[in-house]
Amino acid sequence: MRSAIRRIADVADLPAELRGGVVAIGNFDGVHRGHQSVLEPALEIAARDQVPAIVLTFEPHPRRVFRPAVPLFRITPAPMKARLLCQLGFDAVVEHAFTRAFAGFSPEEFVQTILVRGLGISHVVTGFDFHYGRNRGGTPQTLAEAGRANDFGVTVVQAFSDEGGAVVSSSRIRGLLGEGDVAEAAGLLGYRFTVEAEVTGGKRLGRTLGFPTANMVLPPEVELAHGIYAVRFRRADGSLHDGVASYGRRPTVDEDGAPLLETFLFDFDDDLYGETCAVSLFGFLRGEVKFDGLDPLVAQMKRDEAEARALLADVTPLSPLDLGIAFEGMET
C-alpha cells in the first residue's frame, strides 16, 4: 500500500529530497483522462531520470479569486485530488496559494520564484493551453525558452480527445454530472465520480420505512442531478458496501428541504454517524418523483433497490484509479 502523498502549501516548504524533480503543472480538477495525458509523461520522465515526481497546483481555484460570486463545482476537492495523484504515483503535490498578488507575477517571476528557486525543477510538463504570469502572458513557447535559459526540460502535451474525437475537459464532465449522466462522466474521468462528506443525523424516516440511510450534506456548489443512483459506499475503515442513493430535496416528504444525499446500504446494520465516508456513483436510475403517499414511495424504493443490485453485480473497474477508489477492499 502506497503511503499518503505529501501535500505542501508553499514551494518554500519543499523538502530538499524533493528538489530537482519533474513537475506537472495544472489545476487538474477531476484528474480526468485529459489530465492523465499530462500527468503520465511526467511520471515516465521522473522514472527515467530517477528523480521525484511532483504536481504543482493552486488553491483556491483561480476562478474563486477572479469570480468569487460565481459558484464553482469542484469535481475533486483538494484532499481527494491529492489521493488520486498519490494513486497515480506522484511523490508530492504543491498546493500553492493563488492570490491576486501571485497572479500579478510576471512570467519571468513565476519561472524564477516558483520553478527555479522554489522547486529547483529538472523538467516541467504542461498542457498545450497552459498560461502563467500576469495577464496570462506566459505561454508554452515562453516556457520552452525559459527552460533553455535555466537548464530544465519542457514537455508540452496536446489536447486529449475521447473515442468520439471530443476534447475531454473538466467543464464537460461537470455538465454531464449536472444531467445525471454519471456513466458518461466516468468514461471521461477514468473512474467513478465520488463525493465525500460526514454522515449526519436525519429525521430517521427511512428507518421507519425499512430503508435506513446514511445522510450526507454536500457543498452547495455541487451540481449533481437530483435523482436516484446505484452507488458504492466506502467507510472510514476502507470497507466498501453496495447501495442505492437519493440526492435531492425529497419531494414526497420534505420538498422544501436542502439537497441531501441519502444512501441505503444493502445488507448493512451499523452506526455511521460522525464518520467521513465516500460515495461512488455507478448509474443514474431515475429522477426525483413526488409520490402520492408513503406506500407508493416504498414500492418504488424496492424497485430501485432491485435495479441497483442488478447494475452493481456486473460492474468492473475502469482503470487502476477506479480500482482504488471504488473496488479495493470490497467485502466478499
Rank of each mutant, 00 (worst) to 15 (best):
D295R: 12
R207A: 15
M301A: 02
I25G: 04
G202S: 07
G120C: 09
R83Y: 13
Y132F: 15
S170I: 12
D254I: 03
S161W: 08
V22G: 03
S106Y: 11
L323Q: 15
R249G: 01
G202W: 08
L260G: 01
D162K: 10
E331D: 09
G287E: 13
V298L: 02
L119S: 05
D304H: 03
R134K: 13
Q36A: 01
R33Y: 11
E184F: 13
D242S: 04
G34K: 04
F73C: 07
G329R: 06
V289P: 06
V124I: 02
L261M: 00
Q300C: 11
E221F: 04
R117I: 12
P52F: 12
P71N: 05
A9Y: 12
G238A: 05
R250C: 10
N135S: 15
A146W: 00
T194F: 03
A278M: 12
A306W: 08
D270P: 05
L143T: 03
I45E: 14
P259R: 00
Q50I: 06
P251D: 13
D254T: 03
D151H: 15
G118V: 00
V195S: 03
L115E: 01
S170P: 07
I5E: 08
S169G: 11
L297G: 04
Q112L: 15
A245I: 01
D129E: 11
V93W: 14
E44Y: 05
D151W: 11
S171I: 11
K290P: 05
I228W: 01
A16E: 15
K81C: 00
V168C: 11
L56N: 14
F98L: 01
L39Y: 10
G190L: 01
E17C: 14
T142P: 04
P71T: 07
